[in-house]
């Protein structure tokens, strides 16, 4: 689009600060402690990758940020504004934090273009016609030209995921919340998705909170990789990925990448063993 190398653009918004987050499901009954004493600060424009054992509470944390569920205690700030905290356990869902779900939530009854144009029309920030024009342009940027009038059911799941990320970006969010968006994809499609995501990211510099189980994906995309403990979840180890952006697939074979992989693997494995043992104990 623009001639300037966009990855040099510096993000000034999307500063996410989680303090002492604490979440108990069903406090009167089973009292499942999902998140405990979890603090994490994410810088504007950072790609922060979250990994951790299954069921440790990652999605719980994401839901609290998105405002789908409440926190039992703790505070979350976005750019200094309190989303939830004392006296306000549940954040309001808003266009500044858009979630891209694992199985996708594109509206099947709307064409891809109508899906992408949806947010600004709802918020009244653009007229329907403006929104459609903008949507067409942003889809073209993401290599999605020619699919505007298809329905989501008519395109492959990889392309659907891309449309959904583009739909999220149309809202000009401060934070993009991704919950294992590429889980169901084959590795080849996944690698294409990664490069596409980075390309979109270099244009938009939005803060990305990205949950995954794929360590290679975590290191390839992230500025930092947060390894969560087994349930209740809190950061066990935060790994800074000192491979400069923009990245492409050649970094996968670099020695530094392998070192980071080993380091992550070790920490994750330790937690996985703990999670497994805990599971054994519970029966």
């Amino acid at each position: 689009m623009s001639a300037t190398p966009l990855h040099k653009k510096v993000a000034t918004r999307g500063h996410l600060k989680i303090q002492d987050a604490h979440k108990v499901y069903d406090p009167e009954g089973a009292a499942v402690l999902a998140v405990d004493n979890c603090s994490l600060e994410i810088q504007p424009g950072e790609i922060c990758m979250i990994v951790g054992p299954s069921g440790c509470g990652k999605t719980t944390l994401l839901n609290a940020i998105a405002g789908f569920h409440s926190l039992t205690s703790g505070t979350i700030h976005l750019d200094g504004e309190m989303l939830c905290g004392p006296g306000k356990p549940k954040a309001e869902p808003g266009a500044d934090r858009i979630v891209v779900f694992q199985n996708g939530a594109l509206f099947p009854w709307k064409t891809n273009l109508e899906n992408v144009a949806f947010g600004p029309i709802m918020q009244g920030t653009m007229s329907p016609q403006e929104a459609r024009e903008k949507a067409r342009a942003i889809m073209a940027d993401a290599g999605l030209s020619g699919m505007e009038n298809n329905y989501p059911g008519e395109i492959s799941s990889g392309v659907r995921r891309r449309v959904e990320i583009v739909r999220a970006l149309m809202n000009d969010p401060k934070v993009l919340l991704l919950d294992e968006p590429y889980r169901a994809l084959d590795s080849l499609t996944k690698s294409v998705m990664h490069e596409a995501l980075l390309e979109i990211y270099y244009r938009n510099q939005v803060t990305i909170f990205f949950i995954t189980h794929d360590l290679e994906e975590a290191i390839f995309l992230g500025h930092r990789v947060v390894i969560m403990t087994t349930r209740p979840c809190k950061p066990k180890k935060i790994l800074t990925v000192d491979i400069p952006h923009p990245r492409d697939y050649s970094v996968l074979t670099s020695p530094r990448f392998r070192e980071l992989m080993d380091e992550t693997m070790e920490a994750v494995h330790e937690e996985a063993v703990k999670a497994f043992a805990a599971g054994e104990r519970e029966g």
């Binding site: 789908f68 808003g94 266009a95 858009i98 979630v99 779900f101 918020q123």
Partner: peptide
């Protein structure tokens, strides 16, 4: 998830009814 997505993108209750519930 459709409701959550629509809500997050700023849909009002009426919008949700007209654009999600009805076509859904």
């Amino acid at each position: 998830r459709y409701f959550e997505a629509a809500r997050a993108m700023g849909s009002s209750g009426w919008d949700v009814f007209r654009r999600i519930i009805l076509p859904g």
